[in-house]
Design a protein around this nucleic acid. Structure first.
Lengths: 257, 257
DNA sequence: GAGTGGTCTAGACCACGAG
DNA sequence: TCGTGGTCTAGACCACTCA
């Protein structure tokens, strides 16, 4: 038990560090609207002078706010208050054709398909030998000018004929086309984890490599037990949620039948 | 586009920073087993001299490895190579009595129940007016001596009678007891997000406050549409996954029937 | 070229852990 | 007490952006 005499803030540092004090102050300024979304903060040198700390200390304070995705650093321009983010909701589980996995409302998706060969994790996910041919569908979701979500979908080649890829349909077109070609599905397994983005992912999604991402690995199996799709989704952790809804009535109806 | 002439490593820094170079070297040493789990690294001063950098730079390199949860810092003792972590799997969705949400294999759970009153997010989650009485069940999972997972379960008081709480059953006992008392369930909604731990959570789980956590918000509804349970689970992001398996055969059987 | 953030230095002083 | 990590300083130099 920590001593009860400290009237400070958190349990961690009995003496609140300058860094956290500054971060708290700026956080307050943002919360109360004295600093508005999109605003540029004073320069780091200016802020350092204002708070009477050295530049590294001030930068540490900004790093805290950056990790909370309240502040965005732009090299050569300044530090900016982030605009409130529209949340991304990944809907897992019982999807029916016509339901989108991700809310696509104000979203445009860039699709790029290539042929690749299974290797590494993919062979395990697809239960396929190393080197077997796959179609990779790379989907990059945009909201306005900002990248938003990243999906890599892998499908055995015989289920994703070249015709589908050449037609250069929009995102939704490709997906519905693939659904039609697919044998009836038996099971969807979705695994959700947290990790730091790879450098690629960080630059593609334009997020700090310090910001954790929500990684969804989806494995879809048909009634014959064959894996017909493996999908790797990456969503920025500060904006994304995954939602799963399970209806137990179904189980009960089955039990009764 | 960055210049094509750089044969360096990532896209991010065309000139690899000393920090990343050192982090890479130490990561390599760990990966190849030259530094083994549990080992103490040389002191920061020693490492700084060895790499011929200043202490802050070396500390930045260690911070990278810490964020990757490869290295654990212990104030006053040193930096240690983390032991490989047993992964925590949260199983969501269609649970039946007898199936655990979290693999409890080598796990002990400390339970603590209190009466609280609904406020803030809880009122929305439980669809209950502010101030209505709730039973809070605080579960802290341990693996050996290390905390492992944190769950706060909220239940309307009438569904969690005092008898259950006073019996001071072990974790599993409490849960099965509650299940028996519960009306048949209709729906489970699970929302999964990523965030930084609160200072409380960080110290309870003994994780760095920089390490993101997987936060699961579970809302369980009975057949009458009443929310009979809200659960807030917090799992350390470096060890935890959530897995959801959806069987589509069920839907098809229903459609056929 | 002026202004910005990004990285780094070579120290200082404090807080914690163990003997 | 000693060695450890935690925080901080007051600069330096480089890279990026924009006029």
């Amino acid at each position: 038990m920590p001593c009860g005499s400290c009237e400070r803030e958190a349990v961690k540092p009995p003496v609140p560090s300058r860094r956290d004090a500054i971060a708290d102050d700026l956080r307050e300024r943002i919360a109360t609207g004295r600093l508005k979304p999109g605003d540029r903060l004073p320069s780091e040198a200016h802020l350092a002078a204002q708070y009477m700390v050295s530049t590294p200390t001030l930068r540490n304070a900004l790093a805290v706010l950056q990790a909370e995705s309240l502040v965005e650093k732009v090299h050569g321009k300044g530090n900016f208050v982030r605009r409130p983010l529209r949340r991304i909701t990944y809907r897992g589980g019982g999807r029916t054709p016509g339901t989108q996995a991700v809310d696509l409302a104000p979203l445009s998706v860039t699709v790029h398909t290539t042929r690749v060969r299974a290797r590494g994790h993919l062979t395990a996910l697809l239960r396929t030998p190393t080197g077997s041919p796959l179609t990779e569908i790379l989907c990059l979701g945009h909201e306005g000018d900002r990248p938003h979500s990243l999906a890599r979908i892998y499908i055995p080649c015989d289920l994703a004929p070249a015709a589908v890829l050449r037609e250069s349909l929009p995102y939704e077109g490709v997906l519905t086309r693939l659904m039609e070609l697919r044998p009836p599905l038996a099971e969807v397994r979705e695994e959700i984890g947290v990790r730091c983005p790879t450098p690629d992912e960080a630059s593609t999604l334009r997020i700090s490599s310090a910001l954790a991402v929500l990684a969804v690995t989806r494995q879809t199996t048909d009634t014959a037990g064959r894996v017909v799709e493996a999908a790797l989704l990456v969503l920025p952790g500060d904006r994304a949620d995954a939602v799963f809804t399970t209806h137990h009535v179904i189980d009960e109806r089955l039990a009764e039948g």
